[in-house]
Amino acid sequence: MSAQVVELLQQRIESLQGAPTRLTVPVHPALEDLVQLRTGTSYAVDSASLALALAAGASRAGEWVGFAGWGDFGAEAASQWGIDLRRTVLVPEPGDLWLEVAAALVDVLKVVVLKPTTLVDPKSAAVLDARLRARSAILVVWGAWPRVEARLSAERVAWNGADRGRGRLSRRELRVVVDRGGRRSVRDLELP
């Protein structure tokens, strides 16, 4: 325990000294041990809930999070995941300037969830990655992205609770696959 604290403090000191370091950002308890969020990197997800889950850990730890290009943002779901809406910035329709908006948000927010409206070329993505490293932020892309640290996808989703007109959706079981450039790790989860 104390060793972890010392390590954390050392990372803090390094980041204060100006060196772009890779801090770890807490993740939602449901995804703990499965994926570790490190600042300066980008992650890709394929479902809205996973994007919310990745942002939730940082928001619960008191960081600011932002969502860009997500016009149909479910605020209630976000707050059920534990995201503090008072520390949330939402840019529903960034239009053609989505890359610039994402870059500006990365400057000041810890976790930025981006839903690109068009395909991004590797060069622009590299510029944004450099910005991420300089600012110690995390980019979560809901969609396609040229180079990511890990790609999370939800597979075999099964909803419980609804049965031919009776009940209501209550919980879901799903298999989260984390693809780290070829290395795959799989975990079956039950999420609310």
């Binding site: 943002f73 605020a75 809406l85 008072r86 910035v89 939402l90 239009g95 610039e100 000041v108 927010l109």
Partner: peptide, 24 residues
Amino acid sequence: EQVTRGVARVQAMIGFDAVRVPVL
């Protein structure tokens, strides 16, 4: 303070009402 400044930059870019705060 820093977040406020950064968001103001986004607002200057795409219009002040394009940046929102979700509320329940």
